[in-house]
Nucleic acid binder design. Sequence first.
RNA 1: GUCCCGUUCGUCUAGAGGUUAGGACACUGGCCUUUCACGCCGGUAACAGGGGUUCAAUUCCCCUACGGGACGCCA
Length: 485
Amino acid sequence: MCQIMCEWTRKNMTLRTRFAPSPTGFLHIGGARTALFCHLHARRYGGKTILRVEDTDRERSKQEAVDAILAGMHWMGLDPDEGPFYQSDNVEKHLDIAEQLLVGERAYRCYCTKEELDEMREKQRAEGLKPRYDGRCRHRTAAPAEETPHVIRFLRPKGGEVVWQDKIQGEIRVRNDELDDLILVRSDGSPTYNLAVVVDDHQMGINLVIRGEDHISNTPRQIQLFEALAWEVPEYAHMPLLHGADGGKLSKRHGAVSVLSYRDEGFLPSALNNYLVRLGWSHGDQEIFSREEMEQLFDVCEVGRSAAIFNHEKLTWINGNHIRDAEPKELLEELNYHLVKLGIEGVDQKKLLSVIPEFQERSKTMVEMATKVSFLFVDTLSGYDPAAAKKHLKISSKKPLAQLARRLESLPEWSLEGIEKVFVSVMDQFDIKMGKLAQPVRVSLTGTGTSPGIYETLQMLGREKTLSRLQAGVAYLEEKEQELS
RNA sequence: GUCCCGUUCGUCUAGAGGUUAGGACACUGGCCUUUCACGCCGGUAACAGGGGUUCAAUUCCCCUACGGGACGCCA
């Protein structure tokens, strides 16, 4: 059934879908996933994405939040085709429509006070009913007094039910009598979300609404409104929510942080997108998707209905894959970002680019990569990793290290082959195995016990720095020797 | 409380009325090896429970439990 509907959408009209965040905070992982699904589905079917900022609640809406959302979307590569549009720019139209409904007797003025409503709901709750407006102002003929504050409520249809074929959830039906008369215009004269959404979706020609499951309960109300206005009802796809590691709601501890903090953790946007698309959607046994593959294969109709829990380890694994699969130049921007954060600036980009391949399969995050390449770009090491020094920098290594330095100094050509020959001759001379030579060298050059292959490490570092660091290593060992004697 | 939705390894998922219930992350045994990784081979681990329907159900239906969402002059 879903397949058929997608076909229908593709054949008969340009798909137009929107991402509609409310500007009350940054773009978090759940919002990013919604934006991603909108984007992917639109690309798959040649549609357009529209960004609309839902700022009808002026008090809560903040410009910084809009900026943060835009920045997050941009980093994720999810810039919209149209927008951003602001719901608040269309207030006049919203109020026009409310007026129209009033005239058509599909809406009415309600003079109930907050206290009155609270009391009503409390009573309903006590009786085990769903708290909802009982429609007591429906038949009021005149205002209690001139200029009495009031809201405008929608007069919901009586009897019958609202049914829609949700592209993710399947058929959902709700009896009209379960719903109450929702407020369209507040007592301060401003339109509410449900009114604004319907008017804007209609005006913008939105024909597919992709949003979180938390909006399911709004959908029948919105459909009622579309029908009251004799407007075509869009299609809906309600995505299951993302849960935190504890299985509950997303919290600050569990992923509800800005997507940009994932950047700071060293994740690639392509990897984050890849991870998010696999939450609720799959394509056979494939785990790693390029952006192009996602845009080609993703269909919101194939999304599952159950909520997923965010898993940092798997994200990390996927990130490692994307780092490995990337062209080195594609990693440059993020690598520089993290190097700067480590205080390493003005790095020779050509050099950096040439060195990246050695670190791709060794790095699961860009933070890791930046940390690992840093030894190449500092003048002198700030010190040795204590554990590595203790394990590998032993007095017995002093002479081989010194001898290696001497031989390297006179090496005619700084090539892998030449370096290897020198290593072999030193090993022969002292009758030691590779590990006994390579590890002390590695610690001397990088400050740590891990790095790319030792010959590659020397080649990348260059003769000058290699020699000075080997000499520093020898000096360190001499000092250690004296301390012991 | 009321309404809506969900439930396959710890996690993300595949799956079909009859399968040794598949893959991936994580964990773990081994191989490779100059370190760290990568890679390769292997292992542990799941159909929430109870009733039906059926020759046969984890798969279809019902109930229960558990989880989530909604119930605002928020979006």
